[in-house]
Computed example of a mutant assay.
Amino acid sequence: MKVSFTSTQTPKTKPEDSQLSFGTQFTDHMFLMDYNREKGWHDSRIVPYGNFSLPPSTTVLHYGQAIFEGLKAYRCPDDTIQLFRARDNFNRFNRSAKRMCIPEIDTDTVLEHLKDLIRTDREWVPSSRGTSLYIRPAIIATDPYLGIRASHTYRFFIILSPVGAYYPEGFNPVKIWVTSDYVRAVPGGVGEAKTAGNYAASLYASEEAQREGYTQVLWLDGKEHRYVEEVGSMNIFFVINNTIVTPALNGSILSGITRDTVIQMAKKQGIAVSEKRISMNEICDAHEKGWLSEAFGSGTAAVISPVGTIRYEDRVLTIQKGTAGPVASMLFDEITAIQYGEKKDPFQWTEKI
């Protein structure tokens, strides 16, 4: 599929690396592609970053039929740029599409379009350690129709954002708050899809956690409100008796790309990993007995985020004396060294642009 190109006539001023936050600034161009039943996916184009014009009746605005992904590109020491696990992200994107009744994309074709877009805005890829180019592919339903059915038309787009650290704490431990009152997802629902409504459902509890001085919410299962599932923007891991323990994927937990990265890297480093159902009472018991040595989250945005404090009901668990532990630190160092091209990639996770 050929890609048409329209260059911006009003290029923006690129921010200094030291001024980057997360998700607030966007590059000069974006990629668009449309779908209808007659043509399939068509009209691939790179155009200046700008607004969409949508009727108030557009399906996505009323029924939330939308999916997205998050991945990154990194500038390496030799000034080349590489993607990290992009193919895995687009494969998961298609799994989300299938669950949300959205037509799938061709991974190979879209990956080439993404590379074209990054080449176009190459100068926007920051170079300082800790910075990267965040990539947001998304699909929204575009039928102008007020009826509950899958849309017949869609818009696929990719926007790019140069970013710094996701959390203000950086790699320093965050505080998480366990909610027993609200749930993010339930078995048989769309918890394992990266769809917009999942994140809207998480906002109320997140606001409550932040009012209490906590960075993120740790969600429990939607049926018994006992078993650990995931954090708002991360999968969660615990180090108990020298074993990394993480909740098993069960249909209501997002299958994180970084989660899989952590598991593969830990096993390569000779660390035991257990994917299983684990309750908060088990976590509290392990903490009380001195078996819980670390907790950390994983996700594209933060890569690895140590957890220093967990509040569950009337209990406050302080982990690793509120500091980053050796396992989280090692995983962060090893994964980011591959992402930035500082170490060889034995897993074939990276792809040069």
Rank of each mutant, 00 (worst) to 15 (best):
E16K: 15
E16I: 09
E16D: 13
Q19S: 15
G23L: 08
H29K: 01
M30L: 09
M33C: 15
M33V: 14
N36V: 03
S53Q: 13
L54I: 13
T58S: 14
G64T: 03
A66C: 06
A66L: 01
A66K: 03
A73I: 05
P77M: 03
D78I: 01
R87F: 00
D88H: 12
N94S: 07
S96P: 05
S96T: 02
I102H: 01
D106N: 12
T120Q: 13
R129V: 11
T142N: 10
A150N: 11
I158E: 02
K175N: 11
I176C: 06
I176N: 06
G191A: 04
A193L: 00
Y204A: 10
Q210R: 14
G213Q: 05
T215V: 08
K223H: 12
E224K: 14
E224F: 02
R226A: 09
Y227E: 08
Y227T: 12
E229I: 00
M234A: 02
N242H: 10
I244Q: 10
I253K: 10
S255E: 14
N281L: 15
C284Y: 10
G290D: 08
E294C: 04
I304S: 05
R311T: 06
Y312N: 08
Y312E: 02
R315I: 13
L317M: 03
E334L: 13
I335F: 02
K344R: 11
P346W: 06
F347V: 07
T350E: 00
E351W: 00
